[in-house]
Design a protein around this nucleic acid. Structure first.
Lengths: 229, 229
DNA sequence: GAAATAGTGTCTATTAGACAGTATTCT
DNA sequence: AGAATACTGTCTAATAGACACTATTTC
């Protein structure tokens, strides 16, 4: 038999993107207590009889104004008793990877929403509400690990992208430079990772780059391993 | 401001072990509706002001009688509106990997608890309650993937084990035979994966095997990749 | 032409996989 | 002795990483 509901269920989103060759995370400024003035992950309570994935989708659309083309996956659930001073709130965190969307949508219901450089957030330079610092750290580690063995890096890119753009994703998320020549051979030589569209694009000086779209493969065999620590 | 609690929060456990060289999952027979007579994952509701990890620990101890030496990690949270006919129940699923514990503890509060071969469960030969078939499938896939890039296989072994025992774990979870010679070289040649205890053990005919314990390394570099599909 | 970026070729040290061969036990 | 299992050595094809080189553009 079901016990009476004892906890509120919420969703929180770790939305990552690449801006100016650096990883950024979307945060909203809290206007009310608790943690008024601090920054928090976008999110909200799950509606009655709403699926968790639907709630995450809804919050993502509200904050970014976009729905299609954004990768969204469940990250982890946090439910320590003291994590929210208002009571026992269990939050299901989701990880979203998006191409550069520009400044947060005007339709956003949060007064102040902005992209923060991940470096500043992990360095503790941004005051974060609740246990959101730990959630951001978990999301970052998930993203770093997934780039190794999945083709998820393309989720940070627009539908058509160059190999250099894809390499910039790896360099921003991992924080390490990558040899452009070997990266090019690795990416184009892994069947199903990326597919040429036939088009090219010129960005400033240099030979124009070929355009690619995401291939059908999700899991990379063999993985694209980052250098050991 | 917190909305009123609208959902019950539960934990469910996917407890895996190796018995007779095959992967098994712990299931309990439901005595009451809904799904009376069907088999379900061990689990229960989270107590007021109880941490999710504490609830999982508690259920694990109740069902297996053991607490130490069992690997426990969060798997995923399930909250589709219709997944429980009694109302909106959000369940946080956990994955536990244990050495062979024998039959479920007598102190278990579930009348019928037993180890089911994973093969029979994924083949649909065991009627499962709620959405537990999907949760078991997710747990299996997580375990399979984690063996590749982590030293987690040792969680299926007692504190001291032989290389052959460790290899039996990989063969049971992946369902593929592995060359004993290359496996031995790979495992003993990866620094920090396993450490020799100095002891040996003889099992029937053949040269006695050296005993090992888990090493300090969690992540395998490079990974131990399974054959492609 | 100089500079910049895209893309290809090549060399080498390392590794995965196949499998021969040695070591040590039980029956 | 024969069978069974543990462990080590060796060969080969494939791969990662370093980096020279060619291709195509802007200034």
């Amino acid at each position: 038999m079901p016990s009476l509901p004892t906890a509120s269920v919420a969703v929180d989103l770790v939305v990552l993107t690449i801006r100016e060759r650096a990883l950024h995370v979307l945060l909203v400024e809290r206007g009310i207590e608790p943690f008024a003035g601090a920054w928090a992950l976008p999110g909200g309570f799950v509606l009655p009889d709403e699926d968790l994935a639907d709630a995450a989708d809804r919050e993502l659309a509200e904050e970014t104004g976009m729905r299609a083309g954004i990768h969204l996956e469940q990250l982890r659930t946090y439910g320590a008793p003291g994590r929210d001073p208002r009571g026992h709130v269990v939050t299901v965190a989701w990880l979203a990877l998006a191409p550069d969307l520009g400044e947060p949508a005007a339709g956003s219901d949060a007064a102040g929403a902005r992209w923060w450089p991940m470096d500043a957030v992990v360095a503790g330079e941004v005051p974060l509400a609740f246990d959101h610092a730990a959630i951001v750290a978990d999301g970052l580690e998930r993203a770093r690990a997934k780039l190794e063995y999945s083709s998820l890096a393309a989720a940070f890119c627009p539908p058509e992208f160059t190999v250099a753009q894809l390499r910039a994703v790896y360099e921003a998320v991992w924080g390490t430079p990558i040899d452009p020549r070997n990266f090019h051979r690795k990416v184009t030589g892994t069947p199903g990772f990326v597919e040429p569209t036939g088009g090219t694009v010129a960005e400033g000086a240099g030979r124009p780059a070929r355009l690619f779209r995401r291939g059908p493969v999700d899991t990379l065999h063999p993985p694209l391993v980052r250098a050991e620590s």
